[in-house]
Design a protein around this nucleic acid. Structure first.
Lengths: 189, 189
DNA sequence: TGACAATGACTGACCAGTCAGTCATATATT
DNA sequence: AATATATGACTGACTGGTCAGTCATTGTCA
């Protein structure tokens, strides 16, 4: 749907309040009235968009449980995907948008917490516990704070949208160092 | 100045675009015209506010270089101060506000990068290098990414404003686990 | 032709920014 | 000291422009 894409662009670039529906319509190549055939009003358009935008994130999150190789490899592949497909792209702006508008749209913060954050953290915690059981991770208190595992990814997202211009950040290299801290220095075959 | 405080409250609560100067004036107990005796327009009011709000942060940042005890202790004290005085208070919202509005106010992102982020990271890097030289930290690639040291603090700030209601986060405990990852498990005397 | 989708001109609310006027205080004059 | 005059911080009603949301009209397709 062209409208959804157009609205996403505008909301990401200007935030909720400063986005004009005239601009969304123009970008989508429809008349303003058409928007109201699909959405009740600006606010529900915004909320539905954020929800929609998350569907791909969610499917990634609940993706492959790592039966095969080491937990570290699984986490590393996961993080690479996340950074390449989210932190370095338009989708990262969605996360920034949620941080920006969340407090003013409790419904969005709630939804995001329920559907993404709590599930994602639970998944991370499971991974961490598995790694501890296997002896890949020593620090067993890490399972209490799965946020620590993903913190650099969040920071990468923020960095890209605010400071990439001033100082580009090699998010993947950073994340590998982070994993070295957690799993111990990688064995150089 | 009552105006500054009032404006801060409103901007933090509603963001730039959705804040009404009538509300700022009412909250400050002055007439709207008075605002324009102190600020050129809404935009420069906002920018000056953000700059002003950072002064206390900056002075903290450039505070005591840790000559005395271990680097870990210094970082731990620093992080505790940061979390208690920033992440858990109104000031945390300022950081969120910068994340939210930064892309639309390049001047603010620039200023913030120059005055806070680059200086802060340089300080962190120096600390990390000292700790590596002293043998407190093994992972010597950490000096390339001082962001990793502070990432949990950033995450804590965001968590507090978005999700504290759903799941309170013990940011200090989290940070200690983080430090255990970096410095190795703490010796229990 | 009838049913439905799409349009875009229009309306009314809202709000940043203005400015003619007020008034408390300071300065000058007698 | 008493009165007159000047100053400028402050006010808030007002204006002009903007924009969310509406709806009478037009286009489309079976």
């Amino acid at each position: 749907m062209a409208i959804i894409e157009a609205a996403m662009e505008e909301f990401v670039a200007r935030g909720f309040a400063a986005t004009r529906l005239d601009d969304v319509a123009k970008r989508a190549g429809v008349a303003k009235g058409t928007l109201y055939l699909h959405f009740k009003d600006k606010e529900s358009m915004f909320e539905e968009l954020i929800r929609t935008a998350l569907v791909p994130l969610i499917s990634r999150m609940s993706a492959p449980p790592p039966i095969g190789g080491s937990v570290r490899d699984a986490v590393e592949r996961f993080a690479e995907t996340f950074i390449l497909e989210i932190a370095s792209t338009r989708r990262g702006d969605i996360i920034r948008l949620i941080v920006a508008e969340g407090p003013r749209f409790p419904a969005i913060a709630d939804f995001y917490f329920r559907e993404v954050v709590s599930k994602g953290l639970a998944g991370m915690r499971a991974l961490i516990e598995l790694a501890i059981a296997r002896g890949e991770i020593r620090e067993n208190k890490l399972a209490q704070f799965p946020q620590l595992l993903v913190a650099p990814a969040i920071v990468a997202v923020i960095w890209q949208s605010l400071f990439a211009r001033h100082a580009p950040l090699d998010a993947i290299a950073m994340f590998k160092v982070h994993l070295d801290l957690i799993f111990g220095e990688r064995r150089t075959t």
